[in-house]
Design a protein around this nucleic acid. Sequence first.
DNA 1: AGAATAGGCGAACAGTGTTCATGTTGCAAG
DNA 2: CTTGCAACATGAACACTGTTCGCCTATTCT
Lengths: 240, 240
Amino acid sequence: MAGRREVLRESLLQSIRDASLSELRRTGPAELSLREVARVAGISPSGLYRYVEGRDGLLELLVADGFERFGKAVAEAIAAAGFDFADQVVALAESYRSWAKANPEQFALILGSPVVGFNPDPNGPTGVAVRQFGMPMLQVILDAAATGQLNASPSPDAPIDLDPALPSIPAGLIEIAMRSWGRIHGIVILEAFGHLNWTGQDVVAVLQAEAKSIAATFGKERSSGSASVRKARGAKVAKR
Amino acid sequence: MAGRREVLRESLLQSIRDASLSELRRTGPAELSLREVARVAGISPSGLYRYVEGRDGLLELLVADGFERFGKAVAEAIAAAGFDFADQVVALAESYRSWAKANPEQFALILGSPVVGFNPDPNGPTGVAVRQFGMPMLQVILDAAATGQLNASPSPDAPIDLDPALPSIPAGLIEIAMRSWGRIHGIVILEAFGHLNWTGQDVVAVLQAEAKSIAATFGKERSSGSASVRKARGAKVAKR
DNA sequence: AGAATAGGCGAACAGTGTTCATGTTGCAAG
DNA sequence: CTTGCAACATGAACACTGTTCGCCTATTCT
C-alpha cells in the first residue's frame, strides 16, 4: 500500500536533498541559505520545516550524505587494490584525495571546522554514516594484521571495543590506524584548504610517497614473492 | 607628533581587536556577528566600517592575529628544544597541538574550512603572517639539513624560491617539510575537530610517537653511541 | 460519511551585513 | 583666531537571513 502521501513526501525529500547539495556546491557550507534551498526545491521556507529540522537539519543531511559517499568511494578503491597492504594504502590515499578534490565543499563540511552547536548524536544518521566511513580504512589495518602483513606490533593487547556489535580491536592497531589516517588526512586537508600552494610541489606525487612510507613504517618488508600473502587472503576478520 | 586623533584611532582599533577575539572565542567563526563586536567595542555597526572592511575584514584581522600568535608559540618551543633534529620535531608537534587545544576557535578559523570569497591576498597582513607562521617549521628542516642531521636526500636539487628575499630551497627539503607538517597537522586537526574521540587513545602519546617516527624517517640514524650530534647539542634541556 | 492529521503557506519577528545622508568633531592652513 | 576640510560617528534604511505561528487544504483513517 504505497500511500500517495508517502510517495510525495519521499519525492519532495529527494528534491530537498538535491537542492541543498547543489546549493552547497554553489556557495559553501557557511553561506548555505535555507530560504534559497526552499526556493530551488519549490517549497516555502516554512514548509521546509516539515521535512528538516531547520538549518542544522539541512546540514546534517549533507553531512550524512557526504560521509556515506566519501566512505563508499574510498572503500571501492581499496577493494579494487587487491590484498597487498601497501597497494591498499596507496589506493586509500589516492581515492581519499580524489574525493576531497572533487567535492571540496562537502569535504570541508564533514571534515573541516565543525559547525558549533551541532552535536552529531552518535546514534543518529550522521553517527552511523561516520562509522561506515571509518570502517573500510580501519579494515585495511585489520586485514593486514590478520594476514600477517604488519610489523609484529609488540603493543600490549589492551583491546578496546568501539562498537558492541563488533569484535574488540587491539589498541595497538587502533593507534596504527590513527597514525595512518592522520598522515593521509594531513596532506589532503592542507592541500584542500590551500595551504600547500606555496610549495609548488606535485601533491599527488608527495602523497604517493607518503602512502608508501606508511606501508614501510607499519608493514613487514615485502619480499619479492607475494605467494605468502596470496595464501593468507582467506581470513577476512580478525577474531578477538 | 602623536596627534590626538591617531591615538584614539589606535586605541579603538585595539578595542575592536579584543572584542572580536573574545567574541570569536565565545561563539566560533561562523557566528561572529559584526554588530555584536561593535556593541562590545562600544561603537555603532556602521562606525566599524571606518576601521575594518566589513565582516571579512574582521575575520582577516583574526586570521592574521592567529597565524602570528600560533607561529610565535611554535617558534619558541622549537628554540627551547636545542639543536637536535628529533627533539625539535617533538617540540614542534607538542606545541602545535597545545596551541590548537588552547585556541580551538582560532585554530579552526585559520586552518579549518576556508571562508569562501575570502582571498588572502599574499601581500596583505595575512600573507606575511602566514609566512612568519610557516617559517620556523621549515627552518627546522633547513637547519637539520645544514647540520647534516638529515638522511642524505638523493633528490635532484631543483631549487625553488618561495620568497625572492630568501635563498632558494631544494625541492627535496620542501617535500620533507610538507610531509612532516602533514603528519603533525593531520593528527592535531583530526583531534581538534573531534574525529578521534572514538579511539579512546591518548593523543599526546600518539602524537609523540608520530613525531619520533618523523625524525626516524627523515633523520640520520641516531645510534646511542654516536656522540657527535649530542655534542653539537646545546646545554638546553632535551627531556625524553 | 465524518474526524483526525499531515502538509503547505503567508505573515510576522528578531536578527544579520551593508550603505548612505547627515551631523559632529579634530586639526592644519590662511 | 577663523575658516575649511577631512576624518569620524551615527541612525535610518534596505535586503537579506532563520524561525515560529495560525490558518487552510488535502489526504488518510475509522
